[in-house]
Design a protein around this nucleic acid. Structure first.
Length: 677
DNA sequence: GCTCCTTGGGTTTTT
DNA sequence: CCCAAGGAGC
């Protein structure tokens, strides 16, 4: 392979046995991964035998594209490149029979569904006090990902949340199975559990995939480690790529010890360090290294070396308040653009989404086009989930959460009381909840309205099912369904304003479009098509970047991982934001973990953010920031203080922003800012 | 059963 | 300050 440095070359040429590639930021990781796959193919490894696992669909798509570029689309298509969850799903679908499922038409529960289920379950027990639902779900997830067997888990000492989760976990799991449903964690855990009890099946999958590759290995959780260990156990051709210094997802279960202990988990592993950074200028890299140098975390020892000497000094910006900070960013960006820098080469990174508001406003005023990454995705919006709820009911009659979601949506007289009676009757007579709704006429104690509502719901469901069965497209059936239940009118009535209505209805229209796009590719058996489509939609929350043209990127520090820009602004570098208050003093609801670890994770987040910049980096903070309406004096981030002065160039905010001049009080603040250092 | 009001709480987020 | 969830009242 031409153009690779010695370390990269070593990683690409390593053939058999476990391999850990410690890929520092900007060290050409993607190149190595794709070159390695190409090299394996070149040496005669069948494409079908290679499994490459990523975390996001986007990363998987990107990898497939780059592999295709090297070896051609035809061969690339035969390599399995999937997310952990996508791969798990295909295992479960293939092994539906061995799992004891009625058929392979199981549902997927997303986080919202899990939340709804736990809410239901919590109602059935005397919890004694209020609980944060999300925290319970997180504990259940944690237990599941550690394959907590009842006994082992019960022995463990824990807090209230462990206790309540321990009580609900078995019920939660039983309910899922009863609904023929899997949650996201199951997609990884269940294949592993299956393989543990069925050595024959494990062997089958081990023979199918003889070369494994895992990207972003520092983000794996315990269950994912077990999946890799199981599948790789026979041949041991396990190559993992990652960077412990970029581990920023412990808060959602990622376990950085997986990458730290790789050599212990996979004895005889070869370790390759990629320490040459081709992305950032030396000035930027010096700051990044200074941030890491102060780390107290256990880490793989490595130091990034700049391949690009010199460069602009990193700017240290002090603003009077958040608005002045935003104005500075906007003006500076406007200036850069005048100098000929493309907007797409610029990004502004913040710790928390709410910080984007001031930035969006300031950039809009400066007429700078922006693209805000994140925010609520189409499939997370309430109205979309409601419509999807109906479709789920069509294909998954056992999915009780979906039935509960839509049986009284829009409101048609089937309230909590009626639902409770239906549920009781269903249990007593051995029906599913939907079965009881369909037989509402025979069930005692229902109000006439509730009976009518149930009948109306049942008839809509049955008619829609009939339409799909006779070959109507998914899009047309959904359109019919939406109008049959009078969703549009209900939405108009419920929305306070016209714009709110337009926004919500717009999401429904977008949903129709997604269906139409999918229908084009569809052939026969609409019901099966819909099963498939629903899974795809659960698993691929499209970030739908689209052809957004030339725009400045606004994104959270987490969302920026894996990306790069020529000019990067980091804003709000203050105690409370970075490190975040929640990391400084952890709460009971948070997943366990020592306080110090949380702070170290915040440090790594800072490190990740710094290393996104190629040419110039701005580190910004405000002296004062409005918190819940009231202005609060801000202390500079401890990470900022640890950077040696000589690496930074303090930049003064000299211009008084016109926007803030208009408002008397901020104008004073702005003038103070221009005077300050 | 539905609507309105109070109350409490407030990261990061993919699958 | 703003939003979501739960309780009270209609």
């Amino acid at each position: 392979m031409a153009g690779l440095n010695p370390s990269q070359h070593a990683a690409v040429e390593h053939l058999a046995g476990p391999l850990l590639v410690l890929a520092g930021a900007g060290s050409g990781k993607t190149r190595v991964v794709t070159a390695r796959i190409a090299r394996l193919l070149e040496r005669g490894v069948p494409a079908r035998a290679i499994l490459a696992v990523t975390f996001t669909n986007k990363a998987a798509a990107e990898m497939r594209e780059r592999v295709a570029k090297q070896v051609g689309a035809r061969v690339a298509k035969q390599v399995t490149i999937a997310t952990f969850h996508g791969f798990g799903l295909s295992v479960l679908a293939a092994e539906a029979r061995a799992l004891g499922l009625r058929d392979d038409r199981f549902t997927l529960f997303d986080q919202g569904d899990s939340l709804a289920l736990v809410r239901e379950l919590l109602r059935t027990v005397d919890a004694g006090r209020k609980f944060d639902l999300g925290a319970i779900v997180a504990r259940i997830s944690q237990a599941k990902n550690h394959f907590a067997h009842d006994a082992e888990w019960r022995e463990r000492e824990g807090d209230d949340y462990d206790e309540i989760a321990r009580m609900l976990f078995p019920r939660y799991q039983a309910a899922l199975r009863g609904y023929q449903a899997f949650d996201f964690d199951d997609l990884v855990c269940e294949p592993v559990r299956l393989w543990r009890r069925r050595a024959d099946l494990l062997e089958k999958w081990q023979q199918r995939y003889t070369y494994l590759l895992v990207d972003e290995y520092q983000d794996t959780n315990h269950a994912q480690l077990e999946l890799v260990r199981s599948l790789g156990g026979a041949h041991n051709n396990v190559c993992v790529v990652g960077d412990d210094d970029q581990s920023i997802y412990a808060w959602r279960g990622a376990d950085v010890t997986n990458i730290l202990d790789f050599e212990r988990h996979f004895p005889g592993a070869k370790v390759v360090k990629l320490e040459d950074n081709y992305r950032s200028s030396a000035s930027i890299l010096a700051v990044a290294n200074a941030v890491l140098a102060a780390s107290r975390a256990r880490r793989h020892d490595k130091t990034l070396v700049a391949a690009r000497p010199g460069g602009d000094k990193v700017r240290l910006v002090l603003a009077a308040d958040a608005d002045v900070e935003a104005d500075f960013v906007a003006r500076e960006i406007a200036q850069l653009r005048q100098e000929g820098v493309a907007a797409r080469d610029i990004a502004v990174l913040y710790r928390s989404n709410q910080q984007s508001e001031a930035l969006e406003a300031a950039l809009a005023q400066a007429a700078v086009p922006v693209r805000v990454v994140g925010g609520q995705q189409l499939f997370d919006r309430k109205e979309v989930k409601d419509v999807l709820g109906y479709l789920k009911v069509l294909v998954h009659p056992h999915d009780e959460i979906a039935v509960r979601r839509v049986v009284n949506f829009p409101a048609r007289g089937v309230g909590d009381a009626a639902l409770e009676r239906l549920a009781v009757a269903a249990t007593a007579r051995g029906f599913s909840l939907l079965g009881a709704v369909e037989r509402a006429g025979e069930i005692d104690g229902l109000s006439p309205q509730a009976r009518d509502g149930c009948a109306m719901f049942a008839s809509v469901v049955s008619e829609a099912r009939g339409r799909l069965a006779t070959g109507d497209s998914i899009a047309d059936t959904t359109r019919w369904l939406v109008s049959a239940v009078g969703l549009q009118d209900d939405m108009r009535a419920a929305a306070g304003s016209n714009t709110a209505f337009a926004r919500r209805w717009g999401s429904i229209e977008s949903l129709f479009k997604v269906f139409e796009r999918h229908d084009e590719r569809s052939g026969d058996a609409k019901l099966d098509r819909l099963v498939d489509l629903l899974r795809v939609m659960m698993l691929q929350r499209d970030s739908d970047d689209g052809p957004s043209g030339d725009a400045v990127t606004l994104v959270t520090m987490h969302g920026a991982k894996g990306l790069e820009w020529r000019y990067v602004f980091l804003v709000g570098l203050e105690e409370g934001l970075l490190p975040h208050t929640r990391a400084i003093d952890a709460r009971a609801q948070d997943l366990g973990g020592a306080e110090a670890n949380d702070i170290e994770e915040e440090r790594r987040l800072f490190y990740v953010s710094i290393t996104r910049a190629r040419d110039r980096l701005y580190l910004c903070r405000a002296k004062s920031r409005a918190l819940r309406g009231k202005p609060v004096v801000r202390v500079p981030s401890r990470f900022l203080v640890q950077i040696p002065d000589e690496l930074l160039q303090p930049t003064e905010v000299t211009a008084v922003p016109v926007a803030t001049l208009a408002e008397g009080t901020s104008a004073i603040a702005a003038i103070l800012a221009s005077l300050g250092k």
